[in-house]
Every structure is written in C-alpha cells, then in structure tokens.
Design a protein around this nucleic acid. Structure first.
Lengths: 174, 174
DNA sequence: GCATCTATGTATAAGCG
DNA sequence: TCGCTTATACATAGATG
C-alpha cells in the first residue's frame, strides 16, 4: 500500500528495514486499537524487533491480557483438584491409606520435603505481604516457569505437540 | 476502509459485530505476518473475543514469543543473585551477621520453612522428570502466578504503576 | 457463521526536510 | 531518527449466496 508494490520478504537494507518496522508496527497497533474499540475485545501484542528489543501493546494493557491467558492455560485450576493433582505428581495416589492413618500421613508428609511447596504458596498468597515481597516472589516464579518451559522444550517434540493439542484444542488460530 | 466510513466505537448489532470481529482480526494477523516477514521480528497476538474466546497468533508461535517475554520479565535471573533476592523476601537483609555465625545461620534456615522452596525448584528442574509430571508442575506454577498477579492487582494502583515503570521502562509502547 | 464481490476509505512506499 | 507529502496498493463496509 504505497507508491509501488513491494514483495513480502525480508528487507535487507537496514535503514529501510527500521523505517518499515516502525511504520508497520504502529499501523498494527492502530488496527488492534480499532478492533478493540469496535468489538470490545481484549488484545495483547508482543513484538521482539530484529534487534531483540521488546515492544508491548494492549487493551486494557498487555500484561492484563497476558495474565488472563496464563491463568487460562492451567488445565485444572479449581481448588477441589489442586491437592489431587499435586499428589499425583509425587506419586501419592493411594489416598485412602493415608486417610485411614493420620499419624502415618503426618509422618510421610514430614519426609516429603517437596510436599510443603503446595502449602507454601497457598499460605503465601493468603498472607498480607508487602508489595516488594510479592514482586520478589513473582521474580522467582517467572524464573521457575522459564526453567520448566525450557525443560519441556528439551523433551520429545512429537510427544509435546500431542499434549499441547490436548491442552489447547479450544484455541482459535489463524 | 469500505464503502462508507464508520465511526470507531462499540458496535451494538451482534451479527455485524461478529462479522467485523472476524474480518478485522484476520486483517490484523495478515498485517502481523507481513511485519514479521518483512523485518524478521517475532510477534505474538493474544485476543479475547467479546464472548471471552481465546485467539492466538504468532511468529514463530504465540507460545514461543510469550515464553520469551516471560523469561525476560524477571529483573534478576542470574544464579548469582537468586539467593540474595530470596533472602530479601524473607527480611534476611543483614547478611554479614549470618556469615559471622554459621551455626546461627543454619538454625535460622531450619526455622524458615519457606526457605526450602528456593531449593525445591532448583532440584526439581535438574531432575529427570516425566513429561506429565512437568506438565503438572506447570499447572501448579500457572496457578501460583495467577494468585500472585491477582494479589498485585488488588494492591494500591499508584504504587504498582511506579514499580511497573521501574521494571519495564526499557519496553517500548504505543 | 463463512466466502465472494465491489466501491471506497486507509495504510504505507518512496521521497523530501 | 523523526515528520510530512503524495500516489498507490490494500483492507474492509455493505451486500449477497
């Protein structure tokens, strides 16, 4: 959409590339704003420029929409199922045995250091923490998420795709 | 850009709204594809429709770009600083005192149940876990992130904006 | 709802300051 | 790196199947 038709392929001239990047990124955000205003949808756009600079855009804000997306990604988030899913991680699938012997359960709980994690964050978020403390937690949390995500990427790609499909088959895509 | 000029405000007619949503969302993705191909940038677009349906688009994939964004969000992710930031969470700011008395440090460490979390996930990600276990962890992790994000949102908005600015002043925005 | 058509408003390529 | 200009390609409003 200009004086001449251009081919949609990687621009080699650096100055030209930067100009096009700025112009079209701006145009993209304008389109996103229009779409949001016309339909009332929420949009987030994340761009990493050729020089790896991060650019964010969103309505109501990029972070709001990204958080909403992340919250939705968990396939099982009801409180009713949290304990269950956590136990299955640690191989504590036989719940009846534990319920029949509270003493043994407590002992086993003490032996499983990892099991405390589940309660750790439940208590954490329930407490009245200072803002900077929450932000520090968020930092650790993002780091952990990154590590787990890397671990997942390292694993068998086909297997991962299957799971991904199961997870996300309800998501529309272009 | 059509037969008549339209005002950019919320469309009330439902059928018309859906049609416009589909057309313009498609157009937006086309623009994003062009931008990515022309400049080599990475893009993710997250949209929640008026009916709260999730739509994802991205190059190379929405998830790839979102993960890259999340990984970058942690202001302090080197291993060298993890212990430091973690201690500051728990108010253990006076490090010299602890270094002068290893015994006391160990004792205090034992008393801080929360402190184990830091080591928990370090060990976790280092181990050879099954895919489904990782996915379960990811589930818990997303839930935790959601809780912390909600907590942050509940807090004083002005204070939060200040912190956000400090965190993200390097991010370009429209 | 989705594809197609056509007229028309918009985004933008190239150029200049 | 910006902003502005202009000619032109493109996106899309409305209509139809």
């Amino acid at each position: 959409m200009g004086r001449v038709k251009i081919e949609i392929k990687k621009i080699t001239n650096k100055n030209y590339l930067k100009a096009t990047y700025s112009k079209r990124r701006k145009g993209l955000c304008g389109k996103a704003t229009d779409l949001s205003r016309l339909t009332g949808c929420q949009i987030a756009i994340i761009v990493f420029s050729p020089g790896s600079r991060l650019f964010l855009f969103g309505h109501p804000s990029a972070e709001t929409v990204i958080d909403r997306f992340l919250a939705q990604q968990a396939p099982c988030t009801d409180n009713d199922h949290e304990d269950e899913s956590f136990e299955s991680i640690h191989g504590v699938d036989d719940r009846e045995d534990l319920e029949n012997n509270q003493e043994e359960y407590k002992q086993e709980e003490d032996e499983m250091k990892d099991a405390k994690v589940n309660f750790w964050w439940d208590e954490l978020v329930g407490e009245q923490l200072e803002l900077h403390e929450l932000i520090q937690y968020k930092t650790l949390l993002n780091k952990l998420r990154e590590n787990v995500a890397r671990k997942l990427q390292d694993m068998n790609r086909r297997e991962l795709c299957t799971i991904d499909f199961f997870w996300k088959e309800h998501i529309h895509r272009c």
